[in-house]
Amino acid sequence: MNSIRNIYCVGRNYALHAKELQNEVPTAPFLFSKPTHALAEAKGQEVILPGDRGSIHFEVELVIRIGRPYEKGIKVDDIVDGMAVGIDFTLRDVQNELKKKSYPWLLAKGFPNSAVLTKFIAFPGVEGCKTTNFALLKNGEQVQVGNIQNMIFDLQTLVDYSALHFGLGEGDIIFTGTPEGVGPVSDGDRLALLWGEQTLGDCTIKLS
């Protein structure tokens, strides 16, 4: 985790998720970022989240790690050296108020432990990713499942867009968007993050 530099996150990259929150489906990638203080590894421990700022929603995502400096024309399979499954935690009530004011989302997205990650595993390539689902279990029940085939903007588009507008280099990671099924977490919830049938990480929520 110490080697991670920039954390880019893609909003509304699955049409059904955009619709479930009554948002318009974007016509270009919609990105925001999180500070590195948001990072927490899902390795069986308690993850402390704020309990006094309204509802907190889970959003499970495929996360890719950049392994070398970006060069124009480089392919995803040549620049990505690892992948993980992550949760983009969102202070939903806070976010809704920020939206009303047309303010940035940072207060709703950037709080400590709001970017939970499993361990990184070898990236199987874009085509390999399409053959496997990622999923989130809450207290043993599957609440979200996704596949990159259903993204509005594919991994190549996300890599190129991030590099063009923000720069992209070794150690940067991209949360690539969440499928439908987001919902609230409660104190004591046990979360498990899956890649196919394999559990890559888990944690217990502690609201404080």
Rank of each mutant, 00 (worst) to 15 (best):
A108I: 00
P29F: 01
A18I: 04
A84V: 01
G110Y: 03
G82Q: 05
I79R: 04
E61I: 01
R65S: 02
K100T: 05
L91K: 09
I64R: 03
E61Q: 02
I66R: 02
I64K: 06
I87F: 01
V80L: 01
F89W: 02
V94G: 12
I79H: 07
K109T: 14
R53W: 11
Q22Y: 01
T90R: 05
Y70M: 00
L31G: 13
E59S: 11
F89E: 08
G110L: 08
E61W: 12
S102I: 10
P104C: 09
L39H: 07
A42L: 01
Q45T: 12
F89Q: 15
N96G: 10
I56K: 08
R92M: 14
E24R: 05
K43L: 12
H17R: 02
R65V: 15
K99T: 08
W105L: 15
G82I: 14
K109L: 00
H17L: 05
T90Q: 14
F89A: 04
E20A: 09
A38G: 06
Q45E: 13
V47I: 03
L21M: 04
Y103H: 07
H57A: 10
G51E: 14
E97H: 03
G67C: 13
S114H: 02
G44N: 13
E46S: 05
K75D: 04
L31I: 15
I74N: 04
